Amino acid sequence: MSYQFVPFQQLRQQPTIVVDSTANGAALVLAHWRGAPTPAPLRDDTSAGSVLRALHAPATPGLAARAVTANHFDVDGFVGVWSLLHPALALHHEALLRLTALLGDFRELPWADPLAEQALQLVCWLNAKEKELFYPPFGAPVLRRREDEASAEKFDWFLPRFADVVRRPESGKAAWEPEYARVRQATAVMRSPATTLTRYPEIGLVVVRTPEPLPYYALFGPTTGSDIVLSIYDGQRYELEYKYTTWIDLESRPTLPRLPLNALAARLNAQEHSPRRWTFDGITDTGPLLRLEGKRLTKPQRYADPDQRPIHASSISPEVLEQTVVQFFEQGYAAMQPRRYWTWPEIKAAGQLLPTR
C-alpha cells in the first residue's frame, strides 16, 4: 500500500492518518501527545515509534487510509511520516530511526549504541537544512504564518531526500558536520572530569555541573531516565528545565507530574540579591525553564541550545541553589507516586495542592 503526504488543512478531504499530532476526524492517530487516541498496542515513547509499531501490525484499523499528515514539522514527526511513506526502508532501518526520533524529541542519545553516531548525523542534517532553507522550530509565527500550514513546505522538501541520507550519511556531510562536531566536542566535556552529575531518582532530577552551557544533545545525553535537569555553570549561572518526557505520554516508564514553578521561583527570589528576578514558564510549555530574567526569551530561543542564549549570574551559591531546588521537589512529590498516562487536568490538580511560596 502506498501513502501520500497531505497538508494538515486537507485532513478531512479524505481518510487520513495523523502523526505526532491530534485531530478530530482522523482515520488513525499515531502520536505520543498526552491524551492522544493512539491505539494501546501502538503506544511508544516517540510518535515515530508508534508508526513503526503500526508497520508491524498492518491489520490496525485506520491504517488502510492512504493520506498522512502532521500539524508541525520536527524530527520525530517527520521520521514518523517518512516511515509510512517508505515502509520497507523504514523497517530495514528501524533501530536507527527509533534512535533518531528519540534524539530529536528528548535530546537523549545512548552513546554505547553502535547506531548513535549515525542518528546524530541524521538529526544534525535535518536541523541544518531546516535552518538553511526554511525557518527554525517554533518560528512560523514570526513569519505571520500558521505552523500547520507553513510546515507542509518542509515536508515536501525533506520527504523525497531523506532516504539518501539514511542510506549514505556521507551524502549529507557538508550540512550535518558543523553541528555534529559541536555536539561531539560538548560530549567530550560532559564525559570529562570538568563535569559531574548528581542524581535524585526519587524526584526525577539530575544536577549537571559543567563549566559552560552546552548543546542539548550533549547536555541531556546522560540524563536518560530523569525528567528534570538543573544545570549549574561556572560563575553561578543556572537553568532548570522540565524535559519533554513529561509533556507527552511516556510509554517506557512511569513519571511524576510536572509541578508549577511559581513557588520555587518565589523561594529563589527571596534569596536573590542581584538586580534580576527568577522567572519560569507554565507547566504546559513543551520544556518549561526556570532561570534568571534578562530580556524575555522567545519560544525559538527557549527551544534552542543553552549555549545559544544568555544565562545570567546569580548571587545564590551553587550549594544553596541545589539544596533549594531539591527541597522544593522533595516536598512537592512527597505524597505522589510515579505512574503512566497523567492527564493535564490531573497534573494541574496536583499542582494546586502545593503551597504558593
Rank of each mutant, 00 (worst) to 15 (best):
T198Y: 00
E251S: 02
R145S: 11
E149W: 06
Q13G: 12
D44K: 02
Y180I: 13
A64L: 13
Q331V: 02
F5M: 08
S274C: 02
R339P: 07
V29R: 05
A54L: 08
R302A: 14
A54C: 11
K348V: 13
G80M: 09
E319N: 04
E130A: 13
F162A: 12
P260V: 07
V123I: 09
W247L: 15
G204Y: 01
L353C: 06
P300T: 08
A64R: 10
A67E: 12
V320Y: 10
P257N: 08
F106I: 01
L55G: 01
G172K: 12
F78W: 07
L321E: 15
P141A: 15
P254S: 10
R145I: 02
A350F: 06
R182T: 14
K348T: 14
N24V: 08
F134G: 05
A54W: 05
R258L: 07
G204T: 02
P310K: 00
M1W: 14
L214C: 11
V206L: 01
S171R: 11
R34F: 01
V206T: 15
R277N: 03
T224Q: 07
W342I: 04
V79C: 07
M190C: 11
P201H: 04
A304V: 03
V75G: 13
T198W: 01
M336F: 12
A350M: 11
I17Y: 07
Q10D: 14
V81E: 04
L214V: 02
L97T: 14
T16V: 09
T279H: 00
A194P: 01
P306W: 01
L11P: 14
T245A: 15
Y238L: 00
R277Y: 00
R302N: 08
A163H: 10
A95Y: 05
E251K: 09
L55V: 03
T198C: 03
E202I: 01
L52C: 09
T60P: 11
T210S: 05
T223I: 02
D285W: 15
L85H: 15
Y200M: 07
T195K: 01
A67D: 13
F78A: 09
T187S: 12
D105V: 06
T324H: 05
C124R: 05
Q10H: 13
A188S: 02
R309I: 11
F220W: 15
D105N: 10
R267C: 12
E322M: 09
A350G: 05
L290T: 04
A90Q: 14
L52V: 01
Y303K: 03
D148I: 03
A119W: 03
R309F: 00
Q331K: 12
W344N: 10
T22A: 11
L256R: 06
P178L: 15
W278M: 01
Q236L: 06
D156L: 10
H273F: 02
A174E: 13
V166Q: 09
R237P: 04
P338T: 02
A101N: 03
L205H: 11
S47I: 12
V206N: 01
K173V: 11
V6F: 13
W342C: 07
A112H: 15
S252T: 07
A27N: 09
Q14S: 12
G351E: 10
L353W: 14
P201G: 00
F280L: 04
G80I: 08
L250V: 09
S274K: 08
